[in-house]
Computed example of a mutant assay.
Amino acid sequence: MKDLLAWFGLKRFPFDKNIKSAKVMDTEPLKECLARLEYIKRRGGILLLTGDPGVGKTLALRKYAQGLNQNLFKTLYTPLSTLSRSDLLYHLNRMLGLPPRLSKSAIYTQIQQTLLESRDQLGKTLMIIIDEAHLLQTGPLEELRLLTNFKMDSYDPFILVLVGQSDLRRIMEFAVMEPFNQRIAIRYHMPGLDPKESRHYVVHHLKLAGAQETILDDAALNAVHELSFGIPRKIGAITEQALTYAMFDQKHTVSAEMVLKVKNLDG
Rank of each mutant, 00 (worst) to 15 (best):
L59E: 11
R169M: 09
K196W: 07
L72P: 02
Q66K: 15
S21T: 14
D87I: 07
A219G: 09
I171W: 01
T82I: 01
W7G: 10
M258D: 01
I130G: 01
A106C: 00
R169F: 00
S86A: 15
M190P: 00
V176M: 08
I40V: 15
P14S: 11
F158H: 03
N69L: 08
G54V: 09
L146Q: 14
R43E: 13
L126R: 04
P14F: 03
R187K: 14
P29Q: 09
P79G: 12
L5A: 12
P191Q: 10
N264V: 02
T109Q: 14
Q212W: 00
F15C: 03
Y155G: 05
P179E: 09
L168V: 08
E32T: 14
V262E: 01
L122P: 00
R187P: 00
V161I: 15
M127S: 07
D16S: 15
A65S: 15
L193V: 09
L98S: 02
K63D: 06
I184T: 08
K207P: 00
M152Y: 12
L10I: 10
L265K: 04
D26E: 14
L146C: 08
G9R: 13
I128K: 02
M190G: 04
R183G: 08
K234F: 05
R12M: 14
L68T: 13
V254N: 02
L10Y: 07
M25N: 09
W7E: 08
L135S: 11
L83R: 04
L5Y: 08
Y155R: 10
D167E: 15
A256M: 09
E132T: 03
G45R: 12
G51Q: 08
E32Q: 15
F229A: 14
R85P: 01
L47G: 06
E132D: 09
L80V: 15
M127C: 13
E257W: 01
D218H: 13
Y201M: 04
L265F: 03
G139F: 10
D217T: 14
R43P: 00
D153C: 03
S84T: 15
E143R: 07
T125D: 00
D218W: 13
S81I: 06
K234C: 12
I19W: 04
N71W: 04
M1N: 11
I130M: 03
L160V: 11
N222T: 14
R145T: 09
P232Q: 05
S21D: 10
M190C: 06
T125E: 10
A219V: 09
Y201W: 07
A60G: 13
L98V: 05
A237F: 01
V259S: 01
T148H: 01
A223F: 05
K124T: 12
K57Y: 09
H204R: 10
F15I: 09
R119M: 13
M247E: 03
V224H: 04
L92K: 05
N69Y: 02
